[in-house]
C-alpha cells in the first residue's frame, strides 16, 4: 500500500441546474428568461401561466432576463439547461437575505431595549432592513473585483426537464 494523499481528489459538487428559455438575441448574446420551478402541481400551473400584469409571475420572470454567450446554434424558443456552482448560489442567498434580516432583527431588539414601544420597534426594524440592503450593495461593490458566479451552459433541455 503506497497510497499518498494526492491519490484522493475532492469530488466537485454537482452544479445546481436551472432551465431557461431563449427569448431573443442581442449582439450575438442569447437573452435568456429563467423558467420558474414549480414545487407542486399548483405552483407548476401558476408557473406556466403567461398572463402579464403588475406582480404576475410572467412579469417577474421577464425582470430576471439576462444575456449569455452561447457556443450552440440556438433559436428563439429553445430551452437550455444552465448550471451554477452550489457554493456561489448559497453565497448569493446568504448575502441577499441574511444580511438585511440580521440588520432588521438587531435594530428591532435595540429599539425595544431602548424605548420599549411597538411603533419605535417597527420603525427601527424597517430602518435596519434598509441599512442591511445598503450593506448588500457595499458587499456587492466589494465583490465586483472578484470573479462572480458564472453560469455554465450545459446543453439543450428536454421537453419534460425542469430545474433541480
Amino acid at each position: 500500500m503506497n497510497t499518498t494523499l494526492s491519490t484522493f481528489r475532492p469530488v466537485a459538487a454537482p452544479l445546481v441546474e436551472g432551465v431557461a428559455r431563449v427569448v431573443a438575441f442581442d449582439n450575438g448574446l442569447a437573452v435568456l428568461e429563467p423558467e420558474q420551478r414549480g414545487t407542486c402541481a399548483g405552483c407548476g400551473a401558476a408557473a406556466r401561466c403567461e398572463s402579464q400584469g403588475i406582480g404576475s409571475l410572467a412579469a417577474r420572470l421577464a425582470q430576471r432576463r439576462f444575456t449569455l454567450p452561447t457556443g450552440l446554434a440556438l433559436r428563439v424558443g429553445d430551452r437550455v439547461r444552465l448550471g451554477v456552482t452550489p457554493c456561489s448560489l448559497l453565497e448569493a442567498s446568504a448575502i441577499v437575505y441574511v444580511l438585511p434580516l440580521l440588520g432588521s432583527l438587531l435594530a428591532a431588539a435595540l429599539a425595544q431595549w431602548r424605548w420599549a414601544s411597538d411603533a419605535a420597534c417597527l420603525g427601527a426594524a424597517l430602518a435596519g432592513l434598509a441599512a442591511g440592503f445598503l450593506c448588500v450593495r457595499g458587499v456587492e461593490a466589494w465583490r465586483a473585483g472578484r470573479a462572480g458566479p458564472e453560469f455554465e451552459l450545459l446543453g439543450l433541455a428536454g421537453p419534460d426537464e425542469s430545474s433541480r
Binding site: R37, I95, V96, R137
Partner: peptide
C-alpha cells in the same frame, strides 16, 4: 415578495440574476 425582488434587483443585479434560475414560488407557500 414583489418589493423584495425589486430591491434586490436594484442593489445587486448579479446576485439577483444568480438566484433567478432557481428561486421557487414563495408567495404561494
Amino acid at each position: 415578495v414583489q418589493f423584495t425582488e425589486m430591491v434586490i434587483r436594484k442593489v445587486s443585479p448579479t446576485l439577483f440574476r444568480t438566484l433567478g434560475i432557481y428561486l421557487p414560488l414563495i408567495t404561494t407557500n
